[in-house]
Design a protein around this nucleic acid. Structure first.
Lengths: 215, 215
DNA sequence: AACCGTAGAAACTAAATAAGTTTCCTCAAA
DNA sequence: TTTGAGGAAACTTATTTAGTTTCTACGGTT
């Protein structure tokens, strides 16, 4: 595959990702993706043998990117676990809000095996690594022990999924980063014991980070 | 039709409007609308003989609401024409941003006769009434005469349609009302001669006004 | 100038989806 | 007990879409 072909293949992937993230995949036709890029369906099927393979490629690329980012955070020895937790939460928020609800619901209904892959990944990556950090915080007396961490993550996931969405953000007098900062405050203030001062606010997220199709 | 039946009919209309405004009408199935409301397709077809009729009803109701609001503004003798223009612009903005681009493009492609109705309405209502107010301003030396008002409206329509949209607003550090206020400033500063002081800023629009399906 | 390979556009085939209708069943009201 | 209405699902028919094939044009190579 030449470099130009690789570039085209990536462009197909990014355009599909953008459209699938916004609308789900069943509502987006291969014809539409082709038209957006300015190629024919024949060219798309040159790189991806079927629409399902394209959906899979979008999903796997997304999860790989998330995995890589999470690993960088976990493996960063310069960060304390609170910083790690906060960065993980930020990254999870970006992932959840970009890989939007329309696609997740669509996958659950129409491509359950891909949905299961995402669900398993989130369980492993979010519940394990995330949960490990929460557990460490409890052990050190920084986080409260009376709140089940699986519920923390369930609530967090739902809040991000439903509040940081284009439709909601259009109708409230707050920007995406303002909303996210408030969510982080409520969560951290809710799980901290208060016995030790903890800095948990992330560096301000620029709204552009919420752009779909962006790394 | 009983009052309860009328309420159900209206609920079907509002749900359809909400979904069509966000996604266009071809991508929204009658099944989905029925599921959202918790009725069967049979019940929907009781009130609307076909999907096309439902789309037509949504469109006509929308245009009627806009017409009524515009008329109230035009007929309000307590308002100067600058206030009238500004209120018309605000109302046009709410209409354009709510009756979203997905539906307009969908109608143009798949239901051209409905699209033409909207287009004609917009020409008449926006170009005529709107244009009349601009003309009056030029005559009074308040607005510049060297800018064609058809272009003013074309540019205004495009700015509102493309900037005040959920996807864009998610990715910028401004709220919908902040963006709208800036648009209004640029437009009025751009068309005013500056010979006379003019107050043009609207009362602040609450973001909830951008909610689809809301009157 | 001729040939070759590739991709766009559109047509094609087969499968899937959706509009609109009908059937069966349940429930509430008379 | 009977009746009527609506939900759920099945059904029919039409339309759409996934994936394939054909035709044509264009650019590169010989």
């Amino acid at each position: 595959m030449t470099e130009q072909e690789a570039a085209l293949r990536l462009r197909i992937l990014k355009t599909a990702q953008d459209q699938f993230f916004s609308h789900g995949f069943t509502k987006v036709t291969v014809d539409e993706i082709a038209n957006r890029i300015g190629v024919s369906k024949k060219t798309i099927y040159k790189f991806y043998p079927s629409k399902d393979e394209l959906v899979k490629a979008v999903t796997e690329t997304t999860l790989k990117d998330v995995e890589q980012c999470c690993r960088q955070i976990i493996d960063d020895e310069n960060l304390g676990f609170v910083d790690k937790l906060q960065k993980m939460m930020t990254h999870a928020a970006l992932h959840i809000s970009k890989m939007g609800k329309p696609l997740i619901e669509d996958l659950e209904k129409n491509a359950p095996e891909i949905w299961k892959e995402i669900s398993d990944f989130r369980s492993k990556r979010i519940m394990e690594d995330f949960g490990k950090l929460l557990k460490e915080g409890v052990a050190k007396g920084i986080f409260r022990k009376d709140i089940d961490r699986r519920l923390i993550l369930l609530i967090y996931n739902n809040v991000i999924e439903n509040v940081i969405s284009p439709e909601v953000l259009t109708q409230i007098p707050f920007t995406a980063s303002q909303v996210y900062e408030t969510i982080i405050k409520i969560f951290f203030e809710g799980i901290l014991t208060g016995e030790k001062p903890v800095k948990y606010l992330p560096k301000k997220i620029v709204e552009r980070s919420f752009k779909k199709g962006k790394k």
